[in-house]
Every structure is written in C-alpha cells, then in structure tokens.
Simulated assay, not measured.
Amino acid sequence: MQILLANDDGIHAPSLHAMHAALQEWGDVTVVAPAIEQSGVGHSITYLHPLVAHKEFKNGEFFGWKVEGSPADCVKLGVLEFCPSKPDVIVSGLNTGANIGINVLYSGTVAAAIEGAFFGIPSFALSQWMDGPPDFAASARRAIPLCQQLLPKTRPGQLWNINFPPPRPGWPTGVEYVTMGVRRVAEEVEKRIDPRGRAYYWSGLNPIRSHLLDEGTDIKELQEGKITVTPLHFDLTEKAFLNELRSEKLSLPE
C-alpha cells in the first residue's frame, strides 16, 4: 500500500507526525507537506513562481519533503514526483482543528484531499476538533481502520471528510455519516486596537459555534462526541437544477 501523507499545518506539526506513525502500520508512507502553516488557503496553487522542495530529516533520518507551497501543491508534487509509485491512498491531516460546515470550503486540509480526488486516488481529509488538550495519537490510530472501511466504498471523483471529537470521558460516542452543516448563525470579524492605536481584525475565531445545530450535520454530531464522516465531491454543479433548466431556452443577447 503506497500512501501519500500531506497536511496544511506544516511539516513540523505534531499532528502530522502522529498520523505518520500510525500510517506506517498500514503501508509505505511518503510525506509531502508545506514548509510553513497553510491553514485556510483553500485550493490555492503556486504557478507564478517556481515550487521549491527540500528534504526534511527527523532524528537523523529522512522524514519527508518540505514544500514552499500550498497543500494542493504538496499533493500534486507527491503524486507526480516524490512517491515511488502512484499512491493507492492520499491522507491529508491530521489537521489541528475541525473542518466542518462551510469552513470545509476554506480548508487547506480538505483541498489537499480534493487534489488527490482530481487524480482519481481515494483521499481522506482528517481533522481533530481542538476543544481542550488533544490526543493526536489516539485519533490517528482510530483513523486507520476507519479509512480501511471506507476505501472500497470510494467512488470516482469523491473524497472523505472525517472529524474527530476531543478526548472527553466516553468520547467518541460513535461514528456517523453526516452532511455538511451549511447554515451559519453569524459571521463575525473582531476589531481590535494595537498599542499604536491602529485597528486590526481577527476573523474565524469560533468556526464551530457560528453554525446552526441542524440534525444530521457534521456540526451537531461532532459536538455530541461522534466521529463524523462526510462524502464530498469536487463537482459543484447543481445537477438537479441544471436538468430543470435544460428544458428552457435562453435568448442569445444582442
């Protein structure tokens, strides 16, 4: 089993190293990760200047490739250049923080998995909700059998978004297939003043609690201690609506 491991928190993230350790029980792992944190960059790619990659070592041994680019860049380079053969599986994570609701569209972690789906490779975006001290090793360990269960269910162009609850007593309480929670309560930007009297702003300070707790969504089930599993697809076409529209005629503008 050839596995490509990427993330958006950077190659030095403890969560990435926990995921790497767990994945070695499953197969041959190639790490290709950003040189610095790339959270929230979405599916950005580097094309206006060259991509630079360096070898990264851990305890004197080669650990992986450090890329001066985005998570999507890392997956592209991993598939085309650094993996010894085409990956059988792509894992993005373990992310430090949940990737749920509308925030999935901003996520570099999810974008890396989408890039894997572009190549037709089964891809998993794995994230850890940070609501107290995390146990990355435990979540990474649970991720392996879960990914193995989902692997044969993967369809062309589809990827999996998986979120783990924090390590509270009795959690996780189960695993649920869920939809994205797409209804926000509010979107806020917090204004602050620096010591020189200048305004600056923080956005996205409370991504989970800014959403409505609709039944069957990743937002609600994760907050009830569930591991949430959402099948995603990179084709954003509103197909049902498109089929309705095809029965109509558009007039050609003059």
Rank of each mutant, 00 (worst) to 15 (best):
Q149F: 02
F124G: 09
D135M: 07
C147L: 00
R142Q: 14
Q148E: 13
D131N: 13
L105Q: 12
C147W: 00
P169C: 06
F136N: 07
S123Y: 14
R142I: 00
L146D: 01
P156M: 05
Q128M: 05
R142P: 02
A117Q: 06
V110P: 04
I114E: 07
M130Q: 09
W171M: 08
P122N: 02
A111I: 03
F124W: 11
A138K: 15
N161L: 15
S107L: 10
Q158R: 11
A125H: 11
K153C: 07
A117N: 08
G132S: 02
K153W: 02
D135Q: 08
P165T: 02
F118A: 07
S123M: 15
F164D: 00
G157Y: 09
E115P: 03
R155K: 15
P145Q: 10
G132R: 10
I162P: 02
S139H: 10
L126W: 04
G174A: 08
D135G: 08
N103G: 08
P134S: 10
G120V: 05
F124I: 08
W171N: 01
M130C: 01
P167I: 13
G101N: 05
V175Y: 00
I102A: 11
L150I: 03
G108K: 11
I162R: 00
A112W: 15
F118Y: 13
L150H: 12
R168A: 13
R142W: 14
D135F: 13
P172Q: 06
Q128T: 05
R142D: 04
L146G: 06
F136E: 04
V175A: 08
P156H: 01
W129Y: 15
A117I: 08
A138I: 10
L105S: 01
G116F: 00
R141S: 15
L150R: 05
A117Y: 06
L150M: 12
K153N: 01
S123K: 14
L159C: 12
A112N: 11
T154A: 05
F118T: 11
P172S: 06
F164R: 06
N163G: 12
G157L: 05
W160V: 06
L159K: 11
N161E: 14
R155T: 08
F136K: 05
K153R: 13
P133N: 07
G132L: 09
V175G: 02
Q158P: 05
W171A: 03
F124M: 02
A140K: 03
A138M: 13
P165C: 09
G116K: 00
A138F: 14
V175L: 05
V110N: 04
A112Y: 14
T154H: 09
E115K: 14
V104K: 10
R155C: 10
L146Y: 07
N103W: 15
P133T: 11
L151Q: 04
A117E: 06
A138W: 12
S139E: 01
I114S: 02
N163A: 14
R141E: 12
P152C: 02
L150G: 09
L126Y: 08
G132V: 03
I102F: 11
N161H: 14
P145A: 08
A117L: 09
L151Y: 07
G174W: 12
P134L: 15
Q149M: 04
G108P: 14
N163C: 15
A113T: 10
R155D: 01
E115I: 04
N103T: 14
P166K: 12
G116T: 03
G101W: 11
P172A: 10
G174V: 12
P172W: 07
L146E: 00
F119L: 01
G108F: 07
T109W: 11
I102Q: 04
Q148M: 12
